[in-house]
Design a protein around this nucleic acid. Structure first.
Lengths: 236, 236
DNA sequence: ATAATCAAAAATCTCGAGAAAAACTGTTGA
DNA sequence: TCAACAGTTTTTCTCGAGATTTTTGATTAT
């Protein structure tokens, strides 16, 4: 059992950045997901190149990479801006995630070996611990919970052999994370999330793929309701 | 009935290029799909900038855009190369396409209005005409058939409201086109492709989504077999 | 007061040169 | 004969300045 997350993404992700452009790309992505740069905000190269301490051309490259993730939109000859958000978009993201992630889970359950099972159990354990700390109200634990939540979902579908599904799923996860940050801010994690995760693990290890995908669907769709109950001016 | 193909893609596609980088991007994409640049081939910026008549930085941007479509892979600090191809990859692409396209078709059949029906019929007619010309053996008609085949598949799912599914489907279509070019070269279009398209149209207009998705699945998966029967050294 | 027009300002896009890294080649030693 | 090493060459990556385009602000006429 070496590394839990073996992110074999199409655009290599796990390693450390080997170029300035990629370093800037990661910082920018993080800032956009965390809301430092607001949805719809214009991203002026001249300003940002100082802030991220790279040349203009390099920052342009970083922005171009973010277009790949659809976190930034490029408008012809009118520069870049942060991708806008909307309820419709989030609903679309969520439903598409369900489609991809259930299919991936189904294949994972079908093909996963002992190591996969062990990884699932381990990731679930890590996540549970993070939830305990979160309930205690310790500081800075939300970040850790986010990381482990993501790791858990990634490990669940890690035995799915389709690199394309995992690639798309990865993009959508980044997208939905942006929305989830908004909803989590107001509404702390409800207690039954843990029970849902537990149920998914149980069904997965029992190789009951119908049950597992059903629970996973409801689990993902629940975040949609959470965002829907936000005050309307959050998403405009 | 204005324009048949209203490509409302995430990365705007239909319009004409408004920047040199985008123009170079399109030419490069076309050349890669058509096999001018072979799979795995190294793409040296110094050579290509002369060939496509743009500056080095501009060409780099175009290459970065192609990474989005996964037609080009960027390797840390060792430049770019054309994405390699393999049978496994094509199988993955095809299966993922089935997953996305059947889901999209299902929603299209559920939500499509009269205009959608009309567009489907029209696109099918255009495609049929192209097939006639293809059988006659006129020159340069393969290009036209490709375009209309693509338009047909696009129109079929055009009533699907999910921009994300259409976005991913678009990427995968570009990918599979590269493989299909190889197989079509040897094996001209079999006659029953037309019958399959006809069956899809009939089922779609009859709002029989189970039947339509079933035929569409088989239709897409058939290209997989076609490539599988190629001599092995085509894909290495 | 509103709308249209035109000029100034800001931002984007593009390019070529310099610095850093990787690949290649010929040589040396076992 | 093969492997390792060092210098050379090639290629990539980065940066800042110039050319175009878009946006802003003020002026004028209706």
């Amino acid at each position: 059992m070496n590394d839990l997350v073996s992110s074999t993404d199409l655009a290599s992700e796990a390693d450390e950045p080997k170029t300035l452009a990629e370093a800037a790309y990661r910082q920018l992505r993080r800032d956009i997901i965390e809301g430092v740069h607001r949805p719809g905000e214009k991203l002026r190269v001249e300003h940002l190149k100082d802030q991220y301490e790279v040349g203009a051309g390099t920052l342009r490259e970083a922005l171009q990479l973010l277009v790949t993730d659809a976190l930034v939109v490029a408008q012809g000859q009118r520069g870049f801006r942060v991708a806008p958000i909307s309820l419709d978009d989030f609903a679309d993201i969520t439903r598409t995630r369900v489609l991809l992630e259930t299919s991936a889970l189904q294949q994972s359950i079908e093909l996963g070996d002992d190591t996969w099972e062990a990884n699932v159990v381990a990731a679930f354990h890590m996540l549970s611990r993070a939830e305990d700390k979160l309930i205690e109200g310790a500081k800075g634990t939300r970040e850790e919970w986010e990381l482990r939540n993501r790791a858990f979902h990634e490990v669940l579908i890690s035995a799915c052999p389709s690199r394309w599904i995992r690639h798309f799923q990865n993009i959508l996860y980044h997208q939905s994370e942006r929305y989830r940050r908004l909803s989590l801010f107001r509404q702390p994690i409800p207690r039954d999330v843990h029970a849902e995760h537990q149920a998914i693990v149980d069904a997965a290890l029992a190789r009951n793929s119908a049950e597992a995908t059903r629970i996973l669907s409801e689990h993902i769709l629940r975040t949609l309701d959470a965002v829907r109950q936000l005050p309307a001016d959050f998403i405009n």
